[in-house]
Amino acid sequence: MSVSAPDIPAKPKRGFRLDLKTVGPLLALALLVLLGISLNENFLSYNNLTNVLARSSFIGIIAIGATFVITAGGLDLSVGSMAAVIAGVMIMVMNWLIPTMGIGWGVVIAGMATGILLGGVAGVFNGTMITRGRIEAFIVTLGTMGIFRSLVTFLADGGTLSLNFQVADVYRPVYYAGLLGVPWPIIVFALVAIGGEVVMRYTAFGRYCAAIGSNEQVARYSSINVDNVRLMTYILQGVLVGVAVLLYVPRLGSASSTTGVLWELEAIAGVIIGGTTLKGGYGRIWGTVVGVVILGLIGNILNLQSLISPYLNGAFQGVIIILAVLLQRGRKNA
């Protein structure tokens, strides 16, 4: 066959563009760090950095779940409300168990198990409605977002659910203590991130997520059980929300109708800034980690300086999100 057809010609500078694609979020992160250093000498302090990372870890863990959901072409808007209702139920269960189990780690561990279980159940519900009920993910999770938010308000009777003080004291170290000076939330975040990266890149599940998000029909014709893989992504998302909440509850020891508000948007934003495509087909976990840290740093830097009001935090985050997507688009069309 002498048909050496000149396949669609290579675009010049393609290599450079690919580099930018990978390096983009890292570059933004580096710029933010430099900006932080130049604005305030405390920025690089150990306390400040662990504080930023520990606060980011809730969103981060949720965002890693969201990376799988979005890569597989789905969306979960309910995670913030889900976190609130899980926190509320965890606190109620722990308070309720005190008379029978006494004050101690037993109650806390029972509470943690409840949180993870609830997350899984919520994920099963979302995933089942989407895959078996054939309803758009946006609609289903918009619905459950409202349901969960309303449930926590109802459970707290419009107020705040507080964890018993003595149990809270037992539980506190899960947020405030750590290993070798690294707070537990950061350690768990790191472990979840490493696990997520491995699953995304080196398992069939990760490959199937990308395939489904890229073209569901192709996945189906390639003998992939599309519904099951999709369902799994929502369950994973729910379980990771549970994990995030069990790290969050000891921080304040309470839950109310304002817990976890807008977490879903921050998580999705982190995913997108990290380079995962919103319509699915391509996802990267480390990018999400970088994206979440970028969002955390913006807030932190605004707090550390006095020129710009920290109330503009949301505006800056918004600009970053739009910029990130704009860059993604530019790469695709250029």
């Binding site: 990308a210 890229s214 073209n215 029909q217 192709v218 189906r220 014709y221 087909g281 391509y282």
Partner: peptide
């Protein structure tokens, strides 16, 4: 549409 993932 059904055979190949064009972006991969």
């Amino acid at each position: 549409g059904k055979g190949l993932l064009l972006n991969m």
